[in-house]
Design a protein around this nucleic acid. Structure first.
Length: 88
DNA sequence: TATCTGACGATAG
DNA sequence: CCTATCGCCAGAT
């Protein structure tokens, strides 16, 4: 577990049910602004993380995982339309 | 150390 | 709204 991973995991742990953030937000909160891709890699390689509460900067769900992603978000009360989270 | 890859992001067309 | 391209960072080989 690297410092970067620990920081990201900590930010994710702070999320609650129905809460959604972007990769950029997570990276910035973790102290690594601009490392959005690294966040995605972390979620993709590490299990046990609330990855479904993380979406792209435009509200798009995780590519190639939109089905499972949308399903999990809906389960937490998040409105998903056409593979995207309703921005409000 | 060099090179490639990916669940990203912003900009241009 | 879409796709295409470049820039970004951290990890793996």
């Amino acid at each position: 577990m690297t410092e970067f991973e620990a920081a990201v995991a900590k930010v994710l742990a702070g999320l609650g049910e129905g809460d959604v953030v972007t990769y950029g937000e997570v990276a910035a909160e973790a102290g690594y602004p601009g490392a959005a891709r690294a966040v995605g890699r972390f979620l993709a390689t590490h299990e046990g993380q609330p990855w479904w509460r993380v979406v792209t900067g435009t509200g798009r769900l995780v590519p190639q995982h939109t089905e499972e992603h949308a399903r999990r978000l809906r389960a937490e009360g998040v409105t998903v339309v056409d593979g995207r989270v309703r921005l409000g």
